[in-house]
């Protein structure tokens, strides 16, 4: 069972996670028919908005503000792309786009982005979907992604590790509560983090190839 402190920490994170979502007027544009140029600009705006929302969420993670300012930037820079793919996986799997995911999926396939990049993305969404994650699990996993202690340029790895451990601990307990018949659930969630890292590596190439195309 969660301790009183852990319950409070979880409540705090959930409140912030739910408050910091993509604005409705922006997500509703996802299903509009845009020209290729407008589509590119729109997705750039989406990505920018995602980063702003991610920062707002991260600011509220207990302990984050106590970290060195440059370390805060190193953590956010290192995790932005991974957090974006995790959030997209949640959008797709929980049908948060008012069941317009099919339209969006088709647009992504026809966007001009090489299918070599799109295939692993949808395969990731599918593998995340199979885990049947709860909202708490998505929020905590996002916090764990942000508080990764081996990001480039991070100075005080020890403090970040301590913060990350407290969230990993709560996540592990929740996994046991939510999925009592699946003792491997927690390990599988962590496995998805490894997959997320590969997106971070390929993201720049993907955007570049898209821009050229």
């Amino acid at each position: 069972e969660l301790t009183q402190d852990e319950i409070q920490l979880l409540q705090y994170v959930m409140e912030s996670y739910n408050k910091n979502r993509m604005p409705q007027d922006l997500t509703s544009k996802l299903i509009e028919n845009l020209s290729t140029d407008d589509n590119f600009i729109f997705l750039t705006t989406m990505a920018t908005s995602h980063v702003q929302i991610l920062v707002e969420f991260t600011k509220k993670i207990p302990g984050f503000q106590t970290l060195d300012h440059e370390d805060q930037i190193a953590l956010l820079k290192g995790s932005a792309v991974e957090a974006m793919f995790l959030r997209s996986a949640e959008l797709f799997n929980k049908k948060l786009l008012d069941s317009h995911t099919d339209v969006l999926e088709e647009r992504i396939w026809n966007s001009g982005i090489s299918h070599d990049y799109i295939n692993p993305m949808f395969s990731f969404y599918k593998s995340v979907g199979e885990l049947k994650m709860t909202e708490e699990e998505y929020a905590l996993l996002t916090a764990v992604v942000i508080l990764t202690p081996d990001r480039q340029f991070l100075k005080d790895k020890e403090s970040v590790e301590k913060l990350q451990e407290s969230f990993l601990h709560i996540l592990e307990k929740l996994c046991k509560q939510h999925h009592p018949n699946n003792p491997q659930h927690f390990a599988r969630l962590l496995g998805r983090l490894t997959e997320l890292r590969t997106f971070s590596h390929h993201h720049t190439d993907m955007v570049m190839s898209w821009r050229v195309s």
Binding site: I41, T45, T48, V55, K77
Partner: peptide, 21 residues
């Protein structure tokens, strides 16, 4: 426009809480 900013600029501005500036 925001689309011309790099990732680090966006993060710095958002952290400072003055993204609209």
């Amino acid at each position: 426009p925001a689309s011309n900013l790099g990732l680090e600029d966006i993060i710095r501005k958002a952290l400072m809480g003055n993204f609209d500036d």
